[in-house]
Design a protein around this nucleic acid. Structure first.
Lengths: 245, 245
DNA sequence: CCAATAAGTTGACTAATATCAATCGAAACC
DNA sequence: GGTTTCGATTGATATTAGTCAACTTATTGG
């Protein structure tokens, strides 16, 4: 692991509040690994041996069943994933593959578990992280059950615009096929939906989103802070897509 | 609070491992409340002031958006709900209403937060509880995105049978309309689906489920331990329905 | 630079699911 | 005990979303 990377990790909410000594201990037993694009680095069902920290690149978390698969999240630097499985010492519920060349820090799950028993500041951080992740997935489930695909797309596009500071135009942070899968629809349906949304205040130009009538879009999306945030904490680990720009 | 109720609460994973003194402190600041049937005791968006513990009765957790609503979980004794909101000191993401006359213990969220900072055993319990809840919702999201409604019903019915010890027949633990909403479908669709499932190994007789051909049903449901469990821990708080019987 | 590959789009069609309305039946309440 | 209420069911229909296939447009890699 490169020395200049440690501060970046230390900066994460999860590691921010623990003692420096304990942080160093944890990092000492961790190691970095570089993966090429398109590599399935975690397979669902495998024992959760490592907490993963993405330093560079991008990772797709996805789930599979009976030959089908769906995107659950896309993780970009600097953030962690599959914390809960590590803590429960249980099999991963999701698979992970790199979307680009990606650099990962692997923190042994056993050291992690030992650490929050020793360092109560760290324990509090883990609690906060898990509670945030939990709420994040609940928001997700709410969107899936309460909104139809058209509304999900509309609210996603609107929310992104707000996350980028209310920009009138921005670039999608992920490929449309991933966005479609994340929102629980087929690429074809997504494509058609985007076309029909032109009548409701958003227009696409390739991967660029252009909000042409924010009021109209808002009327359709009906943003709700209990679904779309703003979330408590920056961490939306485990159930979101990265922010645009 | 009745003295005979304390052991029941103490028995929960969340409170099992903390010191007796700390447990008593926490309970001393808590109080019991009885609610009639059909009362909305928690409204989504309200500040999370109390961890709720169900001692008797049944509580539906549901979410609302734009005039629609859906069931997120049904909580039966003895278990807790809305832990994550209390920890984050954030607004509830779900509403709660009683399905029957219900007795609840209210634990002040601030005391809870203070306690896991003081009692590191309790902190570890909270970590485990949250990690379990998180995984539970992830399983839920997977089912919603990977299975169609027919498959969701089939796997639900099969899983229940296993939870009741592989029984060939059992009574649904919740009303069909709640089950439908929990599984993300309309009551009408559920009703029709149940009828067509007669060709696939399950038959209904009112609220009674009769498995007529387990193999056939299994072939349709394709149970998967990474979706249907068995879960790590008994606790499926925050994202499940109660077990039959 | 051009082929090869993959993403995105479009059309035609099918399947799944929701909606609306009517009815049935069982449980709850005078 | 009868009435009222609410859940469950059924039919008819509308809407939504998925599938398959063809094609276009980007991207990637020699």
């Amino acid at each position: 692991m490169r020395p200049e990377e440690l501060p970046e990790i230390r900066h994460l909410h999860l590691f921010r509040d623990m003692s420096q000594a304990n942080f160093e201990t944890l990092m000492a037993s961790s190691y970095a690994q570089n993966f090429p694009q398109g590599l399935e680095m975690v397979r669902q069902g495998d024992p959760a041996d490592f907490l993963h920290i993405v330093l560079e690149g991008a990772v797709e978390l996805f789930a599979q069943w009976s030959g089908r698969e769906c995107t659950m999240a896309v993780v970009r630097p600097v953030s962690t994933f599959i914390l809960a499985a590590c803590i429960r010492d249980a099999p991963y519920l999701m698979s992970a593959r790199t979307l680009e060349r990606t650099r990962i820090i692997l923190v042994p799950a056993s050291d992690l578990r030992a650490m929050f028993r020793r360092d109560s500041e760290f324990a509090v951080s883990v609690i906060n992280e898990l509670a945030s992740c939990y709420r994040s997935v609940v928001r997700n489930a709410k969107t899936l059950k309460l909104r139809n695909s058209r509304e999900r797309v509309a609210s996603y596009l609107l929310r992104q615009s707000l996350l980028v500071g209310g920009a009138q135009s921005y670039i999608l942070p992920v490929e449309k096929r991933l966005l479609a899968s994340y929102l629980g629809m087929t690429p074809e349906n997504m494509s058609r939906t985007l076309r029909t949304l032109e009548a409701d205040g958003v227009k696409m130009d390739g991967a660029r989103v252009i909000i042409t009538d924010r009021e109209k879009l808002t009327a359709l999306a009906i943003p709700d802070r209990l679904i779309d945030g703003p979330d408590d904490i920056a961490s939306t680990n485990g159930s979101g897509l990265p922010v645009a720009e």
